[in-house]
Design a protein around this nucleic acid. Sequence first.
DNA 1: TGGTTTGTGTAACTTAAGTTACTGCAAGGG
DNA 2: CCCTTGCAGTAACTTAAGTTACACAAACCA
Lengths: 210, 210
Amino acid sequence: MIQELKEGYGHIFEEALINEIVQVGTFKEVSEGYKLMDIGEYVRGMPLLISGAIKVLREDKDGDELLLYYLEKGDTCSMTLTCCMGDSKSEIRAIAETDTKLIMVPVQKMDEWTAKYKSWRNFIFESYHNRLNELLNTLDSIAFDKMDMRLISYLKEKARINDGNIIKNTHQEIAYDLHSSRVVISRLLKKLEQIGKIELHRNYIEILTL
Amino acid sequence: MIQELKEGYGHIFEEALINEIVQVGTFKEVSEGYKLMDIGEYVRGMPLLISGAIKVLREDKDGDELLLYYLEKGDTCSMTLTCCMGDSKSEIRAIAETDTKLIMVPVQKMDEWTAKYKSWRNFIFESYHNRLNELLNTLDSIAFDKMDMRLISYLKEKARINDGNIIKNTHQEIAYDLHSSRVVISRLLKKLEQIGKIELHRNYIEILTL
DNA sequence: TGGTTTGTGTAACTTAAGTTACTGCAAGGG
DNA sequence: CCCTTGCAGTAACTTAAGTTACACAAACCA
């Protein structure tokens, strides 16, 4: 664990902090699809991502989902931070997008480290900053863009996360993430194929030039 | 200033912190419509609201606006927090919704106080928590609700902020906030009037039962 | 006073998106 | 091998929302 921690966080955390994390943190390896957190659950630990990606979702009263953003290497879940301090429940769902390695830190240490380590403060604030901005981007795209643009952004981001140009998803799954319907997504994807930007296959999509 | 500070924040901040704030903070009184912050500006201070309300907006590339949420007594602007640490520009616009009293604290103190005062840490984290949740609510409403529901929520919130049942806005202004068009808003307002929930007048709307 | 500006009401139309319904085809399992 | 299941394509339709255009009246003001 020390090795992974130093690799991912060695350049931002002080030696002493790294050691503390090693003491109280637990290494965790989860595979694609694993649900790390669900809406309404109480937060017990905060994740430091080593590798992989986690998708963060919002759900409405009818159970419809909406993708908010992805967490990647070096990220942590800001929602966790706020939740654990206020002892409140999670507002979001977190699911491993790929196989993921992470370190779980008990929330009790949060306040202590925030007082003690400048690097930890910076990390936390930067994390908030990034998450707020991601949320704003998502909001922009929903409020200001039409579905075709949202779909293109989605495909780009998804390709980036899985570093490759193949997206292994059905149209239905994409529709869930974008809070749309399968027929609409199929229609728009078809158009993208017709103008030569992508190639459609069963169960996967190949990105050509987006 | 000490008096206002103690009234609004005395029960959450330690005596010593209150004194520090008095030392470096500047009292500010702005009237309705005053622009406190704009997109792209650098953040120089962080506001502690004493009274009044501030509306926080997002803007797209075409200059179209969207209301994100309101800040009220006891709130601060989380965007400021993240921006000043990373030395980045504001992502939002902030305009006084009503006449507003606030204290501006120079951003340099942020890190110091976060290390020094537990009450400050709690305040900051709670502030983030609230803001993230407000942002999620706004996002929910845009992603999951139709315009008629969004309009009703808007009217309710607006009435609450101005504590009264009169909303002094034109249909055009409401359309801007909701990122819609005047005709659509007029249409929906008319429907609300027809089912007896509101009463329409020139330049203002009266809430009956929402 | 008459004329201009501004806010609202409404009709007619366009468009994006969602819905329903059906097709065919590919994969996978007995 | 057939048969079920799941995925994708497509047509036809509905609906919410945006757009254009115009009428009218209150407010403003020269």
